[in-house]
Nucleic acid binder design. Structure first.
Lengths: 114, 114
DNA sequence: TCACAATACATAATTTTCTTAGGTATATTT
DNA sequence: AAATATACCTAAGAAAATTATGTATTGTGA
């Protein structure tokens, strides 16, 4: 589990990246997928996830559809076309940010080094 | 310039990584070095930097030394031995976090792809 | 020489974002 | 039967940053 401080600010990027791949996920499913893909190293808390999903919906980035499964309800989130653009921008930006951090933290392998 | 949300939580890591390399820097110098190394894409704000430096000092991770240069004062920060350990842990953790994010954002190149 | 930008420190109010804690309810496993 | 997992949600508080100030010196360009 990474220190929460480190994960800060990446939640929207994670959500949008997953929904760009899957086109339809519900909240709990997102928490499980993140947990599985990261070997438990990133675990989204519901208190952070749900308000963010609601905000993304309010911004027109996601749309929702409530489905009854058995006696329980699931709220599926789908990314909108404009949301796909936002998702792509966010992922690209994070990718560039990582490259910048590699330089800054001096983690970049350079020629002529052991 | 990256969206500030993305940079959140990396300030301590950046400061400690730089001070591990240089052994002695003052606040303004840190802002300039970060700006230069990142081509202006990361610009630390003073309102974030100074309180963080003070906190790191209070935790015994950094020590200070005030020097007069001309008529102006500079507060130099030096990393302590225990601070070096913290710095290394922070950088390692961020490095692993990036690897995790590559998987999560599906940015990892895999065999058999175009 | 006068104004502006840069150097150099600092803090306080506000905002943003997350954590912690709580609440409701059904389904499954032990 | 109890505990865990599934599935949603919100509210209070904490943490971290932004924005806005404030002080003061030094260098630069009009």
């Amino acid at each position: 589990m990474y220190s929460s401080e480190l994960i800060k600010g990446t939640l929207k990027t994670i959500i949008l990246a997953l929904l760009s791949d899957e086109e339809k996920m519900y909240g709990y499913e997102i928490t499980q997928k993140v947990k599985n893909l990261t070997g438990g190293k990133i675990q989204l808390t519901e208190g952070a996830l749900y308000p963010t999903l609601h905000a993304l919906e309010a911004q027109g980035i996601l749309t929702t559809e409530v489905v009854n499964v058995g006696n329980r309800l699931r709220k599926y989130y789908t990314i909108t076309p404009s949301g796909k653009t936002v998702a792509h921008e966010k992922v690209t930006e994070f990718s560039e940010f990582m490259a910048t951090m590699l330089i800054l933290l001096d983690l970049q392998p350079r020629a002529g080094e052991a």
